[in-house]
């Protein structure tokens, strides 16, 4: 976070409280969404992860000050995101290698 003047900090505190509200509403929405029964599992998972990502975004942007950070941190996180997505994609890709017709014991 670049600016640390008292006025700016006081303004930021108000933002923190707003973010708290968003996170509480987000948590209630996550629990509420779990009672919606979609036909597709992918839809259920997608919605849950979407709400979680929005909540995580608010924490990262405001509490971790990523909204106003130095370039080196963005570069570092960009690299982390690349490897994280690579890990996920490779795993999902590999899951396609399992036998299509699993025989029930």
């Amino acid at each position: 976070m670049s600016g640390h003047g008292p006025e700016e900090i006081k303004k930021t505190i108000r933002t923190y409280l707003k973010v708290l509200g968003v996170l509480v509403v987000g948590t209630i929405a996550t629990v509420g969404a779990s009672y919606l029964h979609f036909d597709s599992m992918a839809m259920t998972v997608g919605l849950a992860l979407l709400i979680a990502s929005v909540k995580a975004g608010f924490v990262a942007l405001y509490f971790m000050h990523l909204i106003d950070e130095q370039k080196i941190i963005y570069k570092l996180l960009g690299l982390t995101t690349f490897f994280f997505l690579g890990l996920m994609v490779l795993i999902i890709w590999a899951s396609g290698d399992k036998p299509m017709n699993t025989v029930m014991p």
């Binding site: 996550t30 779990s34 259920t44 849950a48 992860l49 909540k55 924490v59």
Partner: peptide
């Protein structure tokens, strides 16, 4: 935890 909660408790 924001990701663990829905994955383990709700899905």
């Amino acid at each position: 935890w924001i990701f663990l909660f829905p994955i383990l408790y709700l899905l």
